[in-house]
């Protein structure tokens, strides 16, 4: 589960800022100066509480929003500003998204066949109707649905099946990066496991990278190679799964980890709970810089803060 830095960089986000002006005097800074990289074939888990800017980050990267500032490089091409036609096509075919609510993300008036084929329809990626049908059947099989489902409407499917259709829609274009925006949050726990395993096996099979946005830490730990912790629009800590889960430095990350329930009731009883409140912590995220703890492990904070945290842990 070690992130391999020798692998090619697929996505590089540098100082991404996404502000939403609400009125002349008030601007919501949903994402404020974050940087990270995703390597080819890597699963990057982005965690944080609600309102921390996880989804906004995903949507800015796929250009549903126009980023306020910063640079996003995908497959070696800049996708942050105004893009030439070729780049748009590359972005739209190579990066896809799986949405949170499987019902809302499927058009209720379209059959599964047409929903899944939308991408290849738009980009004319088949030569005959026969080929189109075969492509859809192949992808249905890959996500664990049967051919018969192709003629259904979304309301005739169960929650897990709908999410599989959403995954199939993203997969049919053979993307290099899939952004799974809380893809499992709306599903019940047994279905979550199915879908996460599906994502994982797809990642192994196709070698695509996944940006896995979630708030369920145990799921993120299970699936991710690398993890980024977002808080109030800042990336407070990032590193490999082992870095973040076993050697967490930032107090916010440590408080998050302390909130995970233990399966063992004896341990659960004595689980220490750390509280963290940004307002009373005396920290100012905008003053901090990234400090390398190890090659892969980064923490946001001022020099003094980081020294103090490391001393606390030692």
């Amino acid at each position: 589960m070690q992130a391999n830095d020798q692998r090619e960089v697929l996505l590089k986000v540098e100082n991404l800022k996404q502000y939403f002006p609400i009125s002349r005097s008030y601007t919501v800074k949903a994402v404020d100066d974050i940087s990270f990289t995703i390597h080819r074939g890597e699963i990057y888990g982005l965690v944080g509480e609600s309102g921390s800017g996880k989804s906004t980050t995903g949507r800015s990267i796929i250009r549903l929003y126009d980023p306020t500032d910063g640079k996003i490089t995908f497959c070696g091409q800049d996708i942050s500003g105004k893009m030439p036609r070729d780049t748009v096509r590359m972005l739209r075919t190579k990066m896809h998204m799986i949405f949170q609510d499987p019902m809302a993300s499927l058009n209720p008036r379209e059959k599964v066949m047409d929903i899944i084929a939308e991408g290849i329809d738009i980009h004319q990626m088949y030569s005959s109707q026969e080929e189109r049908r075969e492509m859809v059947y192949a992808i249905l099989k890959k996500v664990g649905l049967s051919k018969e489902h192709a003629n259904r409407y979304p309301h005739q499917l169960s929650g897990g099946q709908r999410q599989r259709v959403g995954i199939a829609r993203a997969l049919i274009m053979k993307p290099d990066l899939i952004i799974a925006d809380e893809a499992i949050s709306a599903l019940d726990v047994s279905i979550q496991a199915q879908v996460v395993n599906l994502l994982k096996s797809i990642q192994v099979e196709t070698g695509c990278a996944i940006l896995f946005i979630a708030h369920d830490l145990s799921m993120v730990r299970y699936i991710s190679d690398t993890i980024g912790v977002l808080h109030l629009g800042h990336l407070v800590e990032s590193g490999t799964t082992a870095d973040v889960f076993e050697h967490a430095v930032h107090p916010y990350t440590r408080s998050l980890l302390s909130a995970i329930p233990r399966p063992n009731p004896l341990l659960e009883k004595d689980r220490p709970i750390m509280t963290y409140d940004y307002k009373t912590s005396g920290l100012d995220y905008s003053q901090g810089t990234y400090h390398d703890i190890t090659d892969t492990h980064k923490v946001l904070g001022t020099d003094a803060d980081v020294q103090r945290w490391l001393k606390e842990l030692a």
Binding site: F99, A104, G119, I122
Partner: peptide, 28 residues
């Protein structure tokens, strides 16, 4: 602002396609 329209946009659909394929049938 429904997610299926967003999904269509991330797949690179033109406004014409979104209007005719997604919005019109759902307004029918």
């Amino acid at each position: 602002s429904n997610e299926y329209v967003l999904a269509s946009r991330t797949l690179g659909a033109s406004p014409k396609r979104i209007l005719l394929k997604h919005l019109l049938p759902n307004t029918m």
